[in-house]
Design a protein around this nucleic acid. Structure first.
Lengths: 100, 100
DNA sequence: TTAGACTTGACTAATATGGGTCAAATATAA
DNA sequence: TTATATTTGACCCATATTAGTCAAGTCTAA
């Protein structure tokens, strides 16, 4: 699941049109379409609005949003998957170091 | 292991000074110091030079280099680790979709 | 104690990217 | 068909980041 897919899912489940959601977020509907197709990313602040409008978990949205940024960084990389694993180790190492 | 730690290790193992390696890479030694401490990133092209100079695997360097970029993106994020896992799934999903 | 090795802070120019718009092209459904 | 919904490509601009320098400060060993 990507952040775009999630947004589209939430929107469709609630029977909303792109145009309507776009207007709530105060962006153009062309832009929202791209967001749903993961060719553009929303601003982080928009996630708050989404979590309110669709009454859904903010941190889940946040995780998906960050994941998409990460994915963009590695998607065309041969070493992408290895890099992700190394990064995970780095995060875990830092957490241990700073006492979980 | 970070890319900076790796570079420092390789350099020290080969008995080289920062000043010397910096000159090979054609950067200032202040900059190289920051690179070794992961507060700056080398350009990707520099990895080729490093792999030659230290006769070490290019793709390992590349994986560490990308990992550092990824790590920078998630290090201060509460949802960072979750995001990494989601990103991994996204990569794996895409690979399956495109026939491994 | 002093030279040499290394780190750090302040700064910078060029570049990339983020976050959009708009109109045209396409899909969908009545 | 025709109306509505969505996608896509081309473009834009302000801001953030990159990749770096330089000089001052700190560490370390002899």
């Amino acid at each position: 699941m990507t952040i775009g897919q999630k947004i589209k899912q939430l929107r469709e489940e609630s029977g909303m049109l792109q145009r309507q959601l776009a207007s709530i977020l105060e962006v153009g509907d062309g832009f929202l379409s791209k967001v749903e197709n993961d060719s553009k990313l929303l601003k982080r602040e928009h996630l708050k609005t989404l979590s309110k409008v669709f009454d859904t978990s903010y941190s889940e949205l946040e995780a998906l949003w960050i994941a998409t940024k990460v994915y963009d960084l590695v998607k065309d990389e041969e070493e992408g998957l290895n890099a992700l694993r190394v990064a995970e180790e780095q995060v875990e190492y830092q957490r241990r170091k700073n006492g979980i």
